[in-house]
């Protein structure tokens, strides 16, 4: 099976993990909307240059703003019919300072959870009618373990919120051919993690090395590996595995 005729929407598509997911889906034949608040033209051009026909388009969108999300879905419906594969990948970590409780401000909490959780809910709810109509759909969440430590409360609320969503949607829409899956991650070898380390005033390379060592596998998961896992799920997921949440965090959560 390949993904020709399938339309994908990848939120946070221009970020560290998102780029690899977009590239992978395009390589499998899907037309990919790179959904990001940042410019994604360079990535889109790079993907399109690889193939004879266009396989990507930028969908600049602030997913925290539901009007913006609705407009994006309207555009996709007009151009390509609708979204068959939704990757809810966008997230922000929260404020760089004062992100611990109770110092974190209510305004920062709202701003973060709107992107990290509400954005995914908007995208998901708007994707489902088309998926139901086609009798086929894949919804994936880049999540985090509910028990992650030292992570800002709105970020973890958003990421953990995906677990309930994944499980609910799998039960509710399984008969409509819609499969859901969440990958619960801790540390990923991305530019974001370097930014977080730097924001804490630490030497970035030392910090990255320490992160690698935290994992029982001796290395953090990479965006390429995440993209491979998502592709495997999209291509092969049997109905009985829909709603699965896989911890892919090197054994940190339960074994450390």
């Amino acid at each position: 099976m390949d993904l020709k005729d399938k339309v994908s929407l990848v939120t946070g598509g221009a970020g560290g993990i998102g780029v690899k997911i977009c590239e992978k889906l395009a390589a499998l034949g899907s037309f990919v909307y790179v959904c990001d608040i940042k410019e994604a033209t360079e990535l889109v051009d790079r993907i399109n240059a690889k193939y004879q026909e266009p396989r990507a388009s930028a969908a600049k969108c602030d997913i925290a703003n539901k009007k913006d999300v609705e407009a994006t879905y309207r555009r996709i419906a007009e151009q390509r019919g609708g979204v068959d594969i939704l990757i809810n990948n966008a997230a922000v970590y929260g404020p760089s300072k004062a992100h611990h409780f109770p110092e974190i401000s209510y305004e920062d909490f709202i701003k973060t959870i709107q992107i990290d959780l509400s954005g995914a809910v908007y995208c998901t709810l708007l994707a489902i009618p088309h998926m139901k109509q086609k009798g086929w759909g894949r919804i994936i969440f880049t999540a985090a373990p509910m028990s992650s430590s030292g992570i800002p409360s709105p970020y973890l609320a958003g990421k953990a919120g995906f677990i309930g969503l994944t499980k609910y949607l799998s039960q509710k829409f399984s008969q409509d051919g819609i499969r859901t899956f969440a990958l619960a991650l801790r540390h990923v070898d991305t530019p974001l993690i370097r930014k977080v380390i730097a924001s804490r005033g630490r030497d970035v390379e030392e910090g990255v090395e320490a992160m690698h060592k935290k994992s029982l596998t001796g290395k953090m998961i990479t965006p390429e590996e995440i993209a491979d896992i998502y592709a495997h799920f999209i291509l092969t997921c049997p109905p009985g595995l829909s709603g699965t949440v896989i911890l892919a965090e090197g054994g940190i959560t339960y074994l450390r």
Binding site: A144, S148, S149, S153, A157, G158, A160, G161, G164, L165
Partner: peptide
């Protein structure tokens, strides 16, 4: 979604 979100928030 709210329920598992609250669990994550509570943990943090």
């Amino acid at each position: 979604a709210c329920s598992s979100g609250i669990t994550g928030m509570m943990t943090s």
